[in-house]
Each structure stands twice: as structure tokens, then as C-alpha cells.
């Protein structure tokens, strides 16, 4: 019984009682408190919460870019001690190196990993291909549209083959059409590669559309309010037109509503 459930859902990322406190102008500021969350291997988990609830802070902690003030984060059971190539981060503002071509940007992580030069070019081409950028290898970021830049950033994170992809509102800066097509492509990539994805968004639609589970966070200090399992009978066709989609959407919306109001109250007070 135990062995069966263990093989069925292995925990990839374990977040155990994690809190994060900053000092802002001499005052302690609690961004996150008592976060407990398990992300399953190969799962697509979306994370929504009111602005300022500490979503990005949580992602930084998983990425190892900062250390939790309390609790611990485990990847495959081992505590996170810093950044590593087992996790790839995709930022909202792309974070591409403007002096590197698309290809060279994708190669960046491969250089860090110590992949031999000859192999790098091939891998970069493969992943740029995967995100639909064949033929744009030699373009510099300023010669690409926002959507293409984000594709390069995604290719860069995929290229060094991390188990986990951490995405911080990656499509928030894009126009609606580009966003929708990138969402579809990301799902394709996820199915093809089997990565574990943690995806932050402020869009309920996006969260329900992409996530197998949607974790809803409270207003500051951020906690996990509820994790909503999202499952559709079929993922074929226009998912957004499915009545179940509307029901999930409404459920997440009701969970968020009170938190958003509380967050706005906090903002006014400060």
C-alpha cells in the first residue's frame, strides 16, 4: 500500500514549515509563514495569490537564491543549499543576456554545466527548435519580440536539462494571443519532457488551464490556503469552454477574493 502510493506520487519538492522574514527599514517583515507543500514528480503545479503575498520569494527559496528563515526545502529529499542546475528558473522579464545571440543565451547554462563546446551548439539548436525558434539562432534579444525572447529563456532553462522548472509569471508581460500560444506550447514541452513545473501566475485562467493542481496563497504573510486538484475528462479541444473549467475557475476565484481584499487593505495601510 505504502510502496504503491510512493511509486505513484513521488515528492519532487518538499516544502516543510518554510518561513521567510526580511528586515525592512529596521522592522521585521514576514513575507512567508509556515508554508507546507509537496510538489510531485512530473507535476505541473500553478501557484496563485494576491500581489505581495510572497509567491516570488517562495520561488527564490526553491531556486536556492535565498535561504528560508525557518523550515526547509527538499529536492528529492535533500535540503536545498543553493542554486543548482537541477532547477531552471524562467523570469517574467526574460533575463536574457543582451550581448549574446539566442543560441549563445541557450548555451549559457550548458557552459555553466561544463558541456563541451561542440555538443553545446547542437543542444542549443535542438531546444530552440523545440520552442519554435529554428532559424532565429543568431538573432540578438533586441531583435526578437517579447514572445520570442521568452521562448529563448524557456529553451535556455530546458537546455541544461533540469528536473524542475520554476517559472515566475513568465507570460505576464506578453499580449493575450502570444500568451495563449505559449501556454499551449509549454504544455506540449511539459508532456514531452516530463519536467516538474512550478508556475507562478496572477491569472486564475492561466492557473486552471496549465496546472494539474492550483495552490492558492493567502495575503501576506503568505501561507498555502488550499491546493485545488484540477482534472478534466479530456484535455482535447477548447478547454476553456469546458463547464468544468468555469467551475474550477470560480472555485479558485472565491478562494482568492478575500485574500485580494486583505492584500489591498494592507497596501493602503502601509
Amino acid at each position: 500500500m505504502t510502496t504503491l502510493s510512493e511509486t505513484a506520487v513521488r515528492t519532487k519538492i518538499g516544502i516543510r514549515g518554510v518561513g521567510r522574514t526580511f528586515t525592512v527599514r529596521g522592522e521585521p517583515f514576514t513575507a512567508l509563514a509556515d508554508i507546507d507543500l509537496d510538489v510531485r514528480e512530473g507535476e505541473f503545479l500553478t501557484l496563485v495569490g494576491p500581489s505581495g503575498c510572497g509567491k516570488s520569494t517562495l520561488l527564490d527559496l526553491i531556486a536556492g537564491l535565498a535561504a528560508p528563515s525557518s523550515g526547509e526545502i527538499l529536492i528529492d529529499g535533500a535540503p536545498v543549499t543553493g542554486p543548482g542546475l537541477d532547477r531552471g528558473v524562467v523570469f517574467q522579464q526574460y533575463a536574457l543576456f543582451p550581448w549574446r545571440s539566442a543560441r549563445a543565451n541557450v548555451e549559457f547554462g550548458l557552459e555553466a554545466k561544463g558541456v563541451p563546446r561542440r555538443e553545446r551548439a547542437g543542444r542549443a539548436r535542438h531546444y530552440l527548435d523545440l520552442v519554435g525558434l529554428a532559424g532565429f539562432e543568431d538573432r540578438y534579444p533586441h531583435e526578437l519580440s517579447g514572445g520570442m525572447r521568452q521562448r529563448v529563456a524557456i529553451a535556455r532553462s530546458l537546455a541544461f536539462d533540469p528536473d524542475v522548472l520554476l517559472m515566475d509569471e513568465p507570460f505576464a508581460a506578453l499580449d493575450a494571443q502570444t500568451r495563449e500560444s505559449l501556454q499551449g506550447e509549454l504544455l506540449d514541452v511539459w508532456r514531452k519532457t516530463g519536467k516538474t513545473i512550478v508556475f507562478i501566475t496572477h491569472s486564475i485562467d492561466e492557473a486552471v488551464y496549465l496546472g494539474q493542481r492550483v495552490a492558492v496563497m493567502t495575503s501576506r504573510p503568505g501561507r498555502i490556503k488550499e491546493v485545488v486538484e484540477v482534472s478534466f475528462d479530456s484535455r482535447e479541444g477548447d478547454l476553456r469552454a469546458d463547464p468544468a473549467f468555469g467551475a474550477y475557475r470560480h472555485h479558485v476565484w472565491s478562494l482568492l477574493r478575500a485574500e485580494v481584499a486583505a492584500a489591498q487593505e494592507q497596501e493602503r495601510a502601509s
Binding site: A63, G64, L65, G82, F97
Partner: peptide, 26 residues
């Protein structure tokens, strides 16, 4: 953000300097 992005890929201080700071400052 570029520094953060490089750090997230496990780049240490020396390579960060060589591969990010230096070209960005050119």
C-alpha cells in the same frame, strides 16, 4: 536580474564576473 539569472544557473562569483559583469560593462 541578469546576475540573478546567472546565479540561478549555479554560476559562481568568478564566472559571474567573467560572463556577466564584464560583458555588461563593456
Amino acid at each position: 536580474l541578469l546576475v540573478k539569472s546567472a546565479r540561478s544557473m549555479g554560476v559562481g562569483p568568478v564566472r559571474l564576473f567573467q560572463k556577466v559583469i564584464l560583458p555588461a560593462a563593456v
